[in-house]
Design a protein around this nucleic acid. Structure first.
Lengths: 152, 152
DNA sequence: TATTGTTATACTCTATAACTATA
DNA sequence: TATAGTTATAGAGTATAACAATA
């Protein structure tokens, strides 16, 4: 058994049910807190998530965006329309299959992503400053694991 | 951006900006994934959060619930009304200060909490089963720290 | 007057159903 | 016929402003 800190209690590591509850509550709570920090912006989470997806994974069709964000096509259509009206994304009909529409980030959209990330992280960076190096190391390691869990 | 994986060096723990971004993204992603598991239910996150608060912290006035969930009083009033209509909470005028209303969980509400938690955690428990003891220990430790961060 | 809760109103996000255009 | 996207419509969640009851 690989021990990472001074006194891990083995029995607790087998209480996966309790740990899952703790992790679920902590995740929801932190997500809510982080989300609240967007108060300075006018952009919703859903809109920002689309811009972030376009930033990370390039252009998408409407259907691809809807699948990625796990919303229906009409919901995504509405979100994309709002982003288009704001000048943050462009719609371009696909050359091969003219039923499809390619949604791409505009330079203005890219700038908004950068600025929003900066603002959102500011609060978290300040909060993390009050924790210990060990605690921050734990969070960094956990973040990588959480991503793997979410990708399941 | 693969930074702190198996052997974090002290210098890296000072890259708080990058770590904050990682943690923010991982938290949002896991929260979204967990939230999607509620598909079997008809209850929204907001309604469930109220039932969970009543379960964990006992009865509240409307204002206390609004403060705890960080929404306005009219928003909480609406949520509580829906829960009351569904039979999951009760409203009782306060004996001492008759402006106040005590909101309490009904037995039906308590049953809904239990069942919802069970369903939500089922997915997470299964997911966690595919990780190592070390990884689960890291997540357990991180959950506690995340709660502290969120309470800031 | 101040506080607690509620009602009125409006806007966003989401969904299902129906429709259009294209394959 | 099937698929990609859009439009129509409705319900839930949130907010601000205005109101009622009580302290």
């Amino acid at each position: 058994m690989n021990r990472v800190d001074e006194s891990p209690r083995p029995s607790e590591t087998h209480d996966i049910d309790g740990m899952a509850s703790d992790l679920r509550m902590a995740t929801f709570r932190l997500a809510r807190r982080l989300r609240a920090q967007r108060a300075v912006d006018t952009m919703s989470d859903g809109q920002f998530a689309v811009l972030a997806a376009l930033t990370m994974h390039g252009s998408h069709t409407l259907g691809q965006l809807a699948d990625r964000e796990r919303v229906t096509a009409p919901s995504m259509n509405r979100t994309v329309s709002l982003l288009e009206d704001a000048g943050y994304v462009s719609r371009t009909p696909d050359g091969d299959d003219r039923r499809k529409v390619t949604i791409a980030l505009t330079p203005e959209g890219a700038a908004v992503v950068e600025e929003t990330v900066r603002r959102r992280d500011a609060w978290l960076v300040e909060a993390l400053g009050e924790f210990t190096d060990d605690e921050r190391r734990t969070l960094a390691a956990a973040a990588a694991i959480m991503r793997k869990v979410a990708e399941r």
